[in-house]
Nucleic acid binder design. Structure first.
Ligand SMILES: [Zn+2]
Ligand SMILES: [Zn+2]
Ligand SMILES: [Zn+2]
Ligand SMILES: [Zn+2]
Ligand SMILES: [Zn+2]
Ligand SMILES: [Zn+2]
Length: 449
DNA sequence: GAGTTTGAAACT
DNA sequence: CAGTTTCAAACTC
């Protein structure tokens, strides 16, 4: 309820930077595979064996800091602070009645662009239904648009310097650790083109992966990713025989050029555009839906993206409870389109925290998961926040902010310690914004400090 | 890290 | 279409 949707702008509290275009990229393969939250997380009392830390290397897609990720329409539901007497402590499949009846669609906006610009941009793009775009960010923190930092709602989860987010900036690399349901992933920096007839086809290395997705147009370069405006593809492929020009290759399947991949004989790069184009055409001919999101996975789109899966799985041995299953991997329950045998991937079985993970602006769920049921290692809290707060989109935006901060640190030649502190602070700031938004709080409740 | 299992994509 | 092969990733040890 409550009339107008608040919007929250998350932008890196930029400090002074000088545009230093020459940054070299470290070529380490990102290890990113967002873990699926399981039900019976055995919460061992803080031991070595409890929730394992996984290292996630956040690595910039492109070198310079000139990146921005802007996302609109993130899911946010109005949420009432309340203690969690409502929920069974440890019942796995217990879900809270969800009434999707009325949700307050507030906006969260992450961006590496000064606030003012973001706003403008948003205004421009909104009608066009474009969500993300990349912009050059000069530097210049706008008029001290710094958001302040407050206390986090869940202090236990973060800011535990020694054990927690080991953030190291070394070279161009930021090493984070993942904990609980917070997954830091490589920030997306697929430049997602705006509808801009001219600039789209520039030769600046911006966006090599354009994909024609409409079957209508034979092979026109649609300058626009109609269906996949935001790409979550990060994982490097390891193809050896497909030349990364078949759907076997995830990079190709997601409309991306291979980058930082370990593939052999890869032709899925800008140097084989012609061949690649043919491959795309061939693939589309085989299956016109090929590059549409088969499952929900990449359904965070603005345009026609089908609201339901186009296709089901055919699992026979995995009970659809392994990541072999595309439905499970996409964190959606199996549907009647699936021809699986022995399926256990039901509405009930999907952990609430996984619901809508890959959906942008995923609004459906009003259910909450008490923080003490969120897998983590710290002590419980009485607060609850809506599910799906840390979906892929939000997480990615968060990661982008951190990355930008790290790069700024480098450019300013800050010491390691300073950098760590800065990034941690940025993390804190972002978290605060996210939580605020998750709680349905108005945006600007920021204070200067 | 090597070897196996799995199911989507490709092929016939 | 259906049946088979190929493929790269998920998984196991
Ligand atoms: Zn590949
Ligand atoms: Zn690749
Ligand atoms: Zn490749
Ligand atoms: Zn399945
Ligand atoms: Zn399924
Ligand atoms: Zn199934």
């Amino acid at each position: 309820m409550s009339g107008n949707p608040p919007s929250i702008v998350l932008l890196p509290s930029s400090s002074s930077i000088s545009s230093n275009p020459s940054i070299q990229t470290v070529t380490a393969h990102p290890i990113v595979r967002p873990p699926i939250i399981l039900h019976q997380q055995t919460l061992q009392p803080s031991s070595s064996s409890s929730i394992p830390f996984k290292n996630v290397i956040v690595k910039p897609y492109r070198d310079s800091i000139q990146q921005a990720l802007t996302t609109t329409n993130v899911d946010v539901k109005p949420i009432i602070l309340q203690q969690s007497d409502n929920v069974e402590p440890h019942q796995p499949n217990k879900r809270i009645a969800l009434d999707s009846s009325d949700f307050n669609s507030s906006n969260i906006t992450f961006s590496a662009v000064p606030k003012s610009e973001v706003m403008t941009v948003l205004q421009q793009t909104q009608p066009l239904n474009t969500v993300s775009l990349a912009t050059m960010v000069p530097q210049s923190s706008s008029n001290s648009a710094s958001f302040s930092t407050l206390r986090l709602v869940t202090p236990s989860t973060f800011i535990n310097p020694s054990e927690m987010s080991t953030i190291q900036t070394s070279g161009q690399q930021i090493l984070l650790q993942q904990r609980g349901n917070l997954v830091i992933t490589q920030p997306l920096v697929t430049l997602q083109v705006q509808q801009d007839p001219n600039s789209a086809q520039k030769e600046n290395n911006s966006n090599p992966n354009l994909f024609p997705t409409e079957q209508s147009t034979t092979n026109t370069r649609t300058t626009n990713v109609d269906y996949l405006p935001i790409q979550y593809q990060r994982k490097p492929c390891n193809c050896t025989k497909s030349m990364c020009l078949k759907l076997y290759c995830d990079c190709f399947a997601n409309g991306l050029n291979c980058q930082n991949c370990a593939c052999l004989n890869c032709h899925n790069d800008t140097r084989h555009e012609e061949e690649r184009a043919k491959a795309i055409a061939a693939t589309l001919e085989r299956n016109p839906n090929a590059f549409k999101s088969k499952m929900y996975k990449f359904a965070n789109t603005t345009i026609p993206q089908p609201d339901r899966p186009l296709k089901g799985c055919n699992c026979k041995k995995s009970s659809c409870h392994k990541r072999y299953c595309e439905c499970y991997e996409s964190r959606v329950p199996c549907t009647n389109l699936c021809k699986c045998i022995g399926c256990k991937n039901t509405e009930q079985s999907v952990h609430p925290l996984n619901v809508g993970f890959y959906r942008s602006g995923q609004p459906k769920t009003t259910s909450q998961t008490p923080l003490d049921q969120i897998p983590r290692t710290g002590p419980p809290t009485e607060t609850t926040i809506p599910n799906n707060v840390f979906n892929m989109e939000v997480t990615e935006a968060l990661a982008t902010c951190l990355l930008v901060t790290g790069q700024q640190c480098e450019m300013n030649q800050m010491s390691d310690l300073e950098s760590k502190q800065a990034i941690l602070k940025e993390f804190q700031r972002c978290m605060y914004q996210i939580v605020q938004s998750a709680l349905g709080r108005p945006p600007t409740s920021s204070l200067f400090d």
